[in-house]
């Protein structure tokens, strides 16, 4: 693993690109989606009116679906490793969850157990995002393309699932954004996904101690 001037590479260029594409799509989808739900003329007109905003939502939905698919296709091992990491929960993860990693002011955290490449909270976000995106996709496309052939109950059901999953995802991403960009303790990792891919080695050695040890061993 490359380590320059006390930094470690956490997220590759492809991962970062995919995250950026997904993030931009998410914002467009979320904005237009909320505008549809609440009939917000201001946002709808921003996208060129009802029909155009709807087209934008659909085609952004296509990119939103294709981006991770293409990424997984070209980075299968990386992705498999990611899935492996976020689906592995040990007593260290439980320990992290008990103290919420020391991020919540009222929960005292004397000892935070060592974490993998992603801490338990990030693992949960990862799982939530994957499940949520799949739900958005498997409901969104039928809503768009099977609107005439689905029976009314299914139309209703896909819309309900699409909407409530959107609510959960948007709230989760808001939390994710807060921790990644605002919270003083965690925003030090910002560049690892948003800029060059690197995190501070010293920081990583205790925040993601298990992963750091692995990196050391591999060297």
């Amino acid at each position: 693993m490359s380590e320059i001037k006390g930094k470690v590479l956490k997220h590759s260029e492809q991962t970062r690109t995919m995250h950026w594409v997904h993030l931009i799509c998410f914002i467009i989808l979320g904005l237009t989606g909320i505008a549809f739900y609440f009939d917000i003329a201001g946002i709808v007109n921003l996208f060129g009116g009802e029909a155009a905003a709807s087209d934008v939502h659909h085609w952004t939905g296509v990119i939103f679906t294709l981006a991770p698919l293409v990424y997984v296709l070209f980075n299968f091992e990386r992705f498999a490793k990611f899935i492996d990491t976020i689906t592995t929960f040990t007593k260290d993860d439980l320990g992290w969850l008990k103290t919420m990693g020391g991020y919540i002011p009222f929960i005292k955290a004397e000892h935070i157990p060592p974490q993998d490449k992603y801490n338990a909270g990030q693992k949960m976000l990862g799982l939530l995002v994957i499940a949520g995106c799949i739900l958005m996709i498997v409901t969104g496309f039928p809503m768009w393309l099977l609107k005439h052939s689905m029976p009314p109950v299914l139309v209703w059901l896909t819309w309900k699932i699409h909407f409530w999953t959107a609510v959960i995802l948007i709230l989760a991403v808001l939390g994710h954004f807060f921790l990644a960009a605002i919270h003083p303790k965690s925003r030090v990792e910002f560049a690892s996904m948003m800029i060059d891919g690197y995190v501070d080695a010293e920081y990583t050695s205790h925040h993601n101690a298990k992963w750091f040890a692995e990196l050391k061993k591999a060297e």
């Binding site: 009802e50 709807s54 809503m143 609107k147 005439h148 052939s149 689905m150 009314p152 139309v155 819309w159």
Partner: peptide
């Protein structure tokens, strides 16, 4: 109206 377009079919 949710603009789902089912009715036109």
């Amino acid at each position: 109206c949710k603009s789902c377009d089912h009715c036109t079919s």
